[in-house]
Nucleic acid binder design. Sequence first.
DNA 1: AATCCAATCAACCGCCTAGTA
DNA 2: TTACTAGGCGGTTGATTGGAT
Length: 264
Amino acid sequence: MVRAPYFDANGIKKGAWSEEEDKKLTAYVERYGHPNWRQLPRLAGLLRCGKSCRLRWMNYLRPNLKRGNYSQKEEQLIMDLHKQHGNKWSLIAENLPGRTDNEIKNYWHSHLKKFQNCNVNNTSSDDDDDDDLNKSKSSSQNTKEHERPKSEVLTFTTDDDNDDDSHHILESSLSNVTTESSYSYTEEEEDNKGNNNNNNAWLCFSSGHEEESNREEDRFASWGATTLFDEFGSSFWTEPFISDDAFSQDYNYILYDREDPFFI
DNA sequence: AATCCAATCAACCGCCTAGTA
DNA sequence: TTACTAGGCGGTTGATTGGAT
């Protein structure tokens, strides 16, 4: 469902991401964050452009992403927010934790758009939309086993159905990310998440791994990026390969694996 | 069984905005 | 004020999938 990998004239790889690339990107971002997307692919050993890395991380690899079905609540929220804000997908995504703007946009165009006028005005004069609606109604019988019937979507019940979103989480791309995807925001985190966008990667890991995690990188992450940032200041981001001595002196439990592809 | 076609969604592209020198 | 850079956003593309014929 994705473009076949290829290299453009500048030697930049495009198209589908391989598992190895995902691992490299995930490992790098988990360890160093993403202070500079343009530099990141070079530092992470990827032959991608920064934008591609950012997109892959934001839309697929980032922790706490929900995959799979949308709850009725989410669908209703998208409809409402779209009615309010139009195609402001990033704004809409802010109100749906775990969903990306890209995913919501896709979902809108493939699932919800056709119901827009139906929901608001049954006498729409838009022929295309009417066609879409008819098509969707007929295709609703072709429901995949993991999808709810379209008729449920059409009803858009507004009662608080206490949908447990976690029940809709089906998968994620990587095992170490998968463990994150079942994470649910607490009310406090929900309240704060709008202020935390810049440190998203770190905060995700520092929110729920404090107790159970024994993995070195998790401990590093949960220990908190801010401490590290304070120590190294802004140069931390521009010099991600500070000698292991620098780390080992003060942070000697973060001794990097010599097999680490990032290790110079 | 083969072909067609609509739906899906990851990924790309171009533009806009904010920050900085 | 201007130019440049990086990040982010929204529109679009295209490969894959699966149902219909």
